[in-house]
C-alpha cells in the first residue's frame, strides 16, 4: 500500500470512523474511490464501520457483472473486507425494502438497522465520511 509510505503513523489514537455509502456502485466513481479510503483507514488501525443506504445498498448486490459497461468490477473487494478487520457492515432497512432487497441478495453478511438504530450508531461516531 504505497499510500502508507509518507504517513506519520503511530499516534496510538483510535477513533470511530463511519463510512456512509449512498451511491450505486456504477454510474459515478464515489463507491470505488470511497472504498479506497475505507481500506486506508483500516490500515491506520481505526475502528471502521460501513453503512449502505439509499442506492448504496446496490454496492453489495450479488451477481454484479460490469462487462457490458466496460468498467472495473470492484465488487469482490467487499468480500475481502474482513481481511482488513472491517466487519461492521450495516444496511438501512428502509432502503432495502424500497428496492425489494433482502440480506439474501447481498454478497456479504450485514446487520440491518432501522432509521432510529442507524441514528444511534451515527451519534456514537467520531468521524462520519459520506460518499
Amino acid at each position: 500500500m504505497s499510500d502508507m509510505d509518507d504517513m506519520d503513523e503511530g499516534s496510538g489514537i483510535v477513533k470511530k470512523f463511519m463510512f456512509l455509502n449512498r451511491k450505486a456502485p456504477h454510474g459515478t466513481v464515489y463507491a470505488l474511490e470511497g472504498l479506497e479510503v475505507v481500506l486506508i483507514t483500516a490500515a491506520f488501525d481505526q475502528d471502521v464501520s460501513m453503512v449502505f443506504t439509499d442506492d448504496g445498498v446496490y454496492q453489495l448486490l450479488k451477481g454484479i457483472d460490469t462487462k457490458g459497461i466496460e468498467v472495473k468490477d470492484f465488487s469482490k473487494t467487499y468480500r475481502a473486507l474482513d481481511g482488513y478487520d472491517i466487519e461492521k457492515l450495516y444496511v438501512d432497512q428502509a432502503s432495502m425494502d424500497a428496492r425489494g432487497l433482502t440480506e439474501d441478495d447481498l454478497i456479504v453478511d450485514v446487520t440491518t438497522l432501522s432509521v432510529a438504530e442507524m441514528a444511534n450508531l451515527m451519534a456514537e461516531q467520531d468521524v462520519v465520511i459520506s460518499f
Binding site: 509518507d6 506519520d8 499516534s11 477513533k15 470512523f17 479510503v37 486506508i40 483507514t41 491506520f44 481505526q46
Partner: peptide, 10 residues
Amino acid sequence: GLGQLVEMGI
C-alpha cells in the same frame, strides 16, 4: 496519499 485524509479524522 489518502493517509493525509485519515490523519485529519484522527
